[in-house]
């Protein structure tokens, strides 16, 4: 069945914003990213809604925007603003140090990790989504994991896909 664009936005904006937040590590960037992606979806809505996957469309747009010039321009604009504060959000019970280091990764490396460990996508899909080779996905992930000192347990099979 069809869904109105407004209904889609109302139903999915929160989840998309959270996705944007792990992708960018910044509340403001996340809001910008999700807004930009939703605007693009809105432009294309009559067509996309007739196709199959508006949510996938937005998520793909967000990931691509995140690693594109748009993101770099945005960050450059932000440099002049308030320096990044340490993460002290109430209720965050994860590894604050790890989260902080994640935010320091280059956009592409970070995107690969988010797609792999937050979105749970296999490397092949990540490669298609970002428009890079599977080898690039692997090398970017390996470099990022190495920086974060994350052990990759190769013998384990239980990784969330």
């Amino acid at each position: 069945m069809f869904v109105e664009f407004a209904d889609f936005v109302a139903a999915r904006a929160d989840a998309l914003y959270r996705y944007g937040y792990v992708l960018t590590g910044h509340a403001e960037d996340a809001a910008d990213l999700v807004q930009e992606a939703l605007l693009r979806l809105g432009d294309a809505w009559p067509r996309v809604q007739r196709r199959d996957d508006p949510e996938g469309y937005v998520r793909t747009t967000m990931a691509r925007l995140h690693i594109s010039t748009w993101r770099r321009l945005r960050r450059e604009r932000l440099v002049a603003e308030v320096p990044e504060k340490p993460y002290t959000q109430d209720g965050f019970s994860g590894d604050a140090g790890l989260w902080h280091e994640l935010k320091g990764l280059p956009p592409k490396q970070r995107a690969v990790l988010v797609l792999r460990y937050y979105e749970g996508l296999p490397d092949q899909e990540i490669a298609e989504l970002l428009g890079v080779s599977r080898g690039t996905v692997r090398s970017q992930a390996a470099r990022a994991l190495d920086k974060l000192r994350v052990r990759v347990a190769e013998l384990e099979t239980g990784r969330v896909r």
Partner: peptide, 8 residues
């Protein structure tokens, strides 16, 4: 990542 998303 999951917890950061929750605590955004």
């Amino acid at each position: 990542l999951a917890k950061a998303a929750d605590a955004a």
